Simulated scan of single mutants.
Amino acid sequence: MSRSDPIRINYYNALERAENVANALFYFGAVISIASLFVTKEKLPELYNLIMVAFAVTVISIFIIGISIRLYFLPRAEDNRRREFFGKAYSISLIHEKTDGYYNNDQVDPMRRVAAQVLENSWFSKNITLRILRLERAKVIIYFMAWFVCIYWRNADFGLILAVSQAVFSEQVIAKYIRLEWLRSRCEDTYERTRNLFTSCASGASFNAMAVDLCSFYETSKANAAITFPSSTFMKMNHSLSEEWNRIRLDLNI
């Protein structure tokens, strides 16, 4: 079976590139802020001014890219993904770009297809977040160790402590880690609840209402977490997760 995802290529890849630029600028700004502590204006005025200008440009650039991600790149990608999601469920064309080889289930009723697609999405999402968290947990431990060293190092400059604290407790480090853990928990909850829905005796309006609730729960989880899965991680796991998904849907007869 051929597998293609033009929505990821056309929209999520651009979002991922923007986030990578924002992350690079963040770390560059952190390095500059620490370097500024060791360069005095009296001894090296030209270098000091250069560092200050670079830091100001970096901060403004991070702000502009951050706003662009939140108000343009992320909504554009998510909106097109949802159009394709519901178009698949109801067998209509809401977007000309269509995935091939995804949303594999044999359900005929649109609401049962919605529930099956939520089950498939949450299965992939919970496993991908777990893989990403392997690295993020290690990074957070290292950052906290560096922060504690600065805090308890007697000769540490107070400015250095503030700079390291700013980097550690930033959107790109601690906040991102917390959002990832929260998203993992929500995806696991979505998967278990949706699986239980298919194994229950719910039908008709009862099934439809719970399917809509689970779909909303999953979508609001993604929107609030605002986490983009790296394409490289997805591609590495795609084959094994797809094989396991086929076993899951056959077991549930969906």
Rank of each mutant, 00 (worst) to 15 (best):
S2E: 14
P6Y: 11
P6H: 09
I7T: 02
I7A: 04
I9H: 12
N10V: 08
N10Q: 12
Y11V: 02
Y12S: 05
N13K: 15
E16W: 13
R17P: 00
A24V: 08
A24I: 12
F26W: 06
Y27Q: 12
F28N: 04
G29F: 00
A30K: 06
A30T: 03
I32T: 08
I32G: 07
I32M: 05
I34Y: 07
A35V: 12
A35L: 15
L37K: 07
E46F: 15
A54Q: 05
F55I: 09
V57A: 13
T58S: 14
I62P: 01
F63P: 00
F63E: 04
I65W: 00
I65C: 01
L74V: 09
P75F: 13
R76V: 04
E78H: 01
R81G: 08
R81S: 14
F85S: 01
F86K: 00
F86D: 01
K88H: 15
K88L: 12
I92K: 12
S93C: 07
S93M: 07
E97S: 11
D100H: 10
Y103I: 05
N105K: 01
N105M: 03
N105C: 11
N105F: 05
V108Q: 10
V108L: 11
D109W: 04
P110K: 01
P110W: 01
R113H: 05
A116Q: 05
A116Y: 03
L119V: 06
L119R: 03
L119D: 02
E120N: 11
N121I: 05
K126P: 02
N127C: 10
T129Q: 00
R131I: 12
I132T: 07
R134D: 09
R134M: 10
L135T: 04
A138Q: 08
V140R: 00
Y143P: 00
F144T: 08
V149Q: 00
C150F: 03
R154P: 01
F158G: 09
F158L: 10
L160C: 10
L162A: 15
L162T: 13
A163T: 02
V164D: 00
V164K: 00
V164L: 05
Q166L: 11
Q166F: 11
Q166I: 06
A167H: 03
V168Y: 01
E171I: 02
Q172H: 14
Q172M: 12
I178V: 14
R179C: 10
L183G: 00
R184G: 02
S185Q: 07
C187T: 07
Y191F: 15
E192Q: 13
R193N: 12
R193F: 04
T194L: 04
L197W: 00
L197M: 09
S200P: 02
S200Y: 10
S203C: 11
A205V: 15
M210L: 14
A211E: 01
D213T: 14
F217L: 11
E219W: 08
P230A: 13
S232I: 14
F234C: 10
F234K: 08
M235D: 13
M237S: 07
N238P: 02
H239T: 13
L241W: 14
E244H: 06
I248T: 08
I248Q: 07
R249S: 10
R249V: 12
L250W: 08
D251E: 12
